[in-house]
Nucleic acid binder design. Structure first.
Length: 635
RNA sequence: GCCGACGUAGCUCAGCUGGCAGAGCAGCUGAUUCGUAAUCAGCAGGUCAGGGGUUCGAAUCCCCUCGUCGGCUCCA
């Protein structure tokens, strides 16, 4: 058999019955691996030796998932010991850790979590063996029934046929496919993080379980780094920064999920919008504006009234007319498309709008700028022929990429979502559109994954999730093909053949919504915007009252050059003004005292770099202007 | 919408088993004129989220409503 150890292949005849023995045979002195990958499948190291190609896992992603899965079992074991009668649900490894779902009348408190974590540590230090056994179905059902573990019985009945595998560690038995680490002693560095509610099987009609989240790592440093990462993310929270930097406001008096853009945030927004408009015009889009409300009948035709009602604010009535606040911009663009006869020569038509929409999001899902009830989509609709579809998608992909990279986002995850179970249009149409999307993606050279069956009912789509500096992903850009609306509204164009054809409609948003994008942007930069976006680019700090005139003259000169500059003339010490300027994350602080005034220069202090000494104003302006022009993220 | 936690000055938070609403920062006034992350002093600032109840007495205990937060579900 061939055995791969850290990438190296070894050919060897083996006698060992299981992988622990095999490992000891090969490397008697080295610590045991966590799990083993046999022909691509991760397994327990206790399992029987078979298979062609074997790879021992130590600290790989796959090994970490095994560790965390085992940590979740350890959690369940501790909970059952401390809170007998608790019913256990499921406990998988997830992206940054693990969770386990429990059903119990009394809520778990933070103190309970400490207690549970303490018990987990005890159990881990006992280094209890974790064994896999295969039980006859009846035995497993009886075992869980005697212990009142109804959820486990439900799982056995639904998910398995024949015998079932269980994992046993001391007094704890769990229904599980595995794999797991060989003993609890492997689980050394972990922490329980939070408790929250989750429906059994994600179904609102089912029991509400208490989900305990935690994380686990192989190394202490990794755990600490992760906890540190959580702290860092908290510091960058756009809600915190939005308050500290006076960017935006959500007020109870206005209403939940409704954003007030304060002057500094509004300035950043207007810069984003200006850039956005300019780029759209440059790329052959036309800008349009549409109202915020429309006759209810429009939403009947579009189908929103029927399928989207619970997300819409209720209609309003006046003089027997009924109006609906818009949850989407599409129907407006469609009516404009219909307003005259279109020829194939007119296509593609690309209409873009910063369209403000209102959606009634459920109260529990609102979150800062990231999930709101009123927001402005950077929307556009492209009406084109089937032949043009691929080309349009490709150029939209590049557009999205350029747009995002202007804001410092260079990493993405791209997903192609294909036909779901419920869909409109014909299979043929879907295949054609999916092919166009796929070809465009292939031609773009951008890496992507296929998300089978995750398309919207009206068409397939491409979603781009951007990665921020902390590696978190955010869904912003989306490109969706729509077979539904052109049909519902009876859209057509006259083809080369003189006959009527239904155009392909592509919905796309590059930033998603200005609100969400701004929120992501704030977190990405931690509030320290690049020069071209900074609400205040330069602040001049005079050292004494004697230097006020000079400071004002500098500010005027900077303003004349188009900079957003201001002077801090308050009667405070320099250290204080610097501290404030830094906390406000202003890119450049220009300090002017008698010395600078005499020499006609400014002392430059750059965000993140500190005191850089005196330079002439002209020199500074030339440098800074360059950085603004290039949208540089460096200072 | 659901489960849990929370809501005290502009901000961050203290306020114990019920007994006169507090601190720091920010703000205002004055002093100080200062060289790279907080000068000093004084003043002002509150329907303790809102409503109802228990009590001689409620920020504190109970109920309801609203909002926020962590998740579930959903999504730009």
């Amino acid at each position: 058999m061939r055995i791969k150890v850290k990438g190296k292949l070894i050919e060897k005849e083996v006698q060992a019955a299981n992988y622990i023995e095999l490992w000891k045979e090969l490397f008697p002195d080295r610590p045991l691996p966590v799990a083993v990958k046999v022909d691509g499948e991760v397994k327990d190291i206790r399992s029987e030796v078979r298979g062609e190609e074997v790879e021992f896992l130590f600290e790989e992603e796959e090994a970490l998932a095994v560790l965390r899965h085992s940590a979740s079992h350890l959690l369940a074991q501790a909970v059952l010991q401390l809170y007998p009668g608790t019913k256990i649900g499921v406990g998988p490894a997830i992206e940054n850790g693990f969770y386990y779902d429990f059903y119990r009348e009394e809520p778990f408190t933070p103190e309970d979590l400490d207690r549970i974590e303490g018990r987990m540590k005890e159990l881990a230090s006992q280094d209890i063996e974790i064994k896999r056994e295969v039980w006859p179905r009846e035995k497993a059902i009886n075992y869980f029934r005697e212990r009142g573990q109804d959820f486990k019985i439900e799982l056995i009945e639904e998910k398995t046929q024949g015998d079932v595998s269980v994992y046993i560690q001391g007094d704890f038995v769990d229904l599980c496919r595995g794999p797991h680490v060989p003993s609890t002693g492997y689980i050394k560095h972990f922490k329980l993080l939070s408790v929250s509610a989750a429906y059994w099987k994600g179904d609102e009609k089912r029991e509400s379980m208490q989900r305990i989240y935690g994380t686990a790592f192989f190394k202490k440093e990794d755990l600490e780094a992760y906890l540190n990462f959580i702290q860092e993310a908290k510091k960058r929270d756009h809600r915190r920064l939005g308050k500290d930097l006076e960017l935006f406001l959500v007020s109870e008096e206005i209403g939940p999920g409704l954003i007030l853009w304060l002057p500094k945030g509004a300035l950043v927004r207007s810069l984003i919008e200006d850039f956005w408009r300019q780029e759209h015009i440059r790329r052959g889009y036309q800008l349009v504006y549409t109202p915020h409300i429309a006759d209810l009948g429009l939403w009947k035709i579009s189908g929103h009234l029927e399928y989207y009602r619970e997300n819409m604010f209720p209609p309003m009535e006046k003089d027997n007319l009924h109006y609906q606040l818009k949850p989407m911009n599409c129907p407006f663009h469609i009516i404009m498309f219909k307003s005259k006869l279109r020829s194939y020569r007119d296509l593609p038509v690309r209409w873009a709008e910063l369209g403000t929409v209102y959606r009634y999001e459920r109260s529990g899902v609102l979150h800062g700028l990231l999930r709101v009830r009123g927001f402005t989509q950077d929307d556009a609709h492209i009406f084109c022929t089937p032949q043009q579809m691929e080309e349009e998608i490709l150029s939209t992909l590049f557009f999205a990429k350029d747009m995002l990279s202007a804001f410092g986002f260079e990493d993405y995850e791209i997903y192609l979502s294909t036909r779901p179970e419920k869909f409109v249009g014909t299979v043929q149409m879907w295949e054609r559109a999916e092919k166009a999307l796929k070809n465009a993606l292939d031609r773009s050279g951008l890496p992507y994954e296929i998300d089978p069956g995750e398309g919207v009912f009206y068409g397939p789509k491409i979603d781009i999730k951007i990665k921020d500096v902390l590696g978190r992903t955010w869904q912003c850009s989306t490109i969706q093909v729509d077979f539904n609306l052109p049909q519902r509204f009876g859209l057509y164009y006259v083809g080369e053949d003189g006959a009527r054809h239904t155009p392909i409609m592509i919905h796309r948003a590059l930033l998603g919504s200005l609100e969400r994008f701004f929120g992501v942007l704030i977190e990405h930069y931690g509030g320290a915007f690049p020069l071209w976006l900074a609400p205040v680019q330069v602040r001049v700090l005079p050292i004494t009252d004697r230097n006020h005139d000079y400071a004002n003259r500098i500010v005027e000169a900077l303003k004349a050059e188009g900079f957003r500059a201001e002077a801090d003339l308050r009667n405070e010490k320099l250290g204080y003004k610097i501290r404030e300027g830094q906390l406000q994350k202003i890119p450049y602080l220009l300090i002017v005292g008698d010395r600078e005034e005499r020499e006609g220069r400014v002392a430059l202090r750059v965000r993140g770099k500190g005191d850089l000494g005196a330079v002439s104003l002209e020199e500074f302006i030339a440098q800074a202007r360059d950085k603004i022009k290039n949208k540089s993220t460096e200072l």
